[in-house]
């Protein structure tokens, strides 16, 4: 964040954001479930210019075996950005400090959501590959992975949904894009369980008053409900597709 950078454009004009959105509008959001053949569950999210593919493998046997938990399934999460995913420079492939931290907190989200006690002695692998980034990749990745888990038929307490909320030009706005992310005054990644309204992930930086932080999570909660509708629609479409394929086989 460099809200005092000389290159900073005016991010809000006449009550609208640069993209023409209102403070609470989401960018165009589309999720497609079942985009990969090999994976047990998968989803592709297109959110603004973000393109992220999530794949789920498992529950399967744990390796190395001594890590096996007799009471519940282990969860592993891997978030990475492809070297070609950003507009600017060519990144390095593989995990870095940022992606290791994101993978860790993403894993915690799914450990909470998945009914892990249903699958003792197994592990569920969740992969999130960012192939094009446009601000808010971690919450988009988790939103996609949630759909991929449902596509894999893994029982969960809820379809978790994420959104970023930040302060740009003094206003709290929902679903920051790349420019708002770069030049904004604060940025919070929030993952919510829309069914209960509980906070499953919260990572914030920036200078906010306590009231603004409290508003941040409430804005995120309202947005998560909208994101969830897109997730549900993606899964319904997937089931229709599976059902029609099965129908053809029977006929």
């Amino acid at each position: 964040m460099s809200s005092n950078s000389p290159d900073k454009p005016q991010l809000i004009k006449n009550g609208k954001r640069l993209s023409g959105r209102s403070f609470t509008d989401l960018r165009p959001l589309k999720i497609t479930a079942g985009v990969l053949k090999q994976a047990d569950g998968s989803a592709m999210i297109e959110w603004g210019k973000n393109r992220i593919i999530a794949a789920v493998y498992g529950p399967h046997e744990v390796f190395p075996k001594f890590l096996t938990n007799n009471k519940k399934a282990l969860v592993s999460a891997r978030y990475v950005m492809a070297p070609f995913s950003s507009l600017e420079d060519h990144g390095r492939s593989g995990p870095n400090r940022r992606s290791i931290e994101i993978s860790k907190v993403a894993k915690h989200v799914f450990e909470n959501a998945i009914l892990t006690s249903r699958f003792p002695k197994t592990i569920i692998d969740i992969h999130m590959d960012v192939v094009q980034s446009d601000g808010g990749t971690r919450i988009a990745a988790i939103t996609a992975a949630s759909v991929a888990l449902a596509d894999a038929g893994i029982p969960m307490k809820d379809l978790v949904a994420g959104v970023a909320v930040g302060k740009v030009d003094g206003e709290l706005v929902v679903d920051l894009d790349k420019t708002e992310d770069n030049y904004g005054e604060s940025d919070a990644a929030v993952v919510i369980s829309p069914r209960t309204g509980d906070i499953l992930l919260f990572q914030m930086e920036g200078l906010l008053t306590p009231e603004e932080v409290k508003r941040t999570v409430r804005l995120a909660k309202d947005a998560a409900v909208q994101v969830r509708e897109v997730q549900v629609a993606a899964l319904k479409k997937r089931y229709e597709q599976v059902a029609s394929e099965l129908g053809e086989q029977i006929a």
């Binding site: 860790k104 907190v105 915690h108 989200v109 450990e111 909470n112 919070a188 369980s193 209960t196 309204g197 509980d198 906070i199 499953l200 992930l201 919260f202 990572q203 914030m204 930086e205 920036g206 200078l207 906010l208 008053t209 306590p210 603004e212 932080v213 409290k214 999570v217 409430r218 909660k221």
Partner: peptide, 27 residues
């Protein structure tokens, strides 16, 4: 911060927090 702003936050671990818990922990 010194002047009573919130400058960072991190939730870690699988537990979830309700909005009310969140508010009271900020205070």
């Amino acid at each position: 911060t010194t002047t009573g702003k919130i400058c960072s936050a991190q939730k870690s671990g699988l537990a979830s927090f309700t909005l009310e818990q969140f508010d009271s922990l900020i205070d």
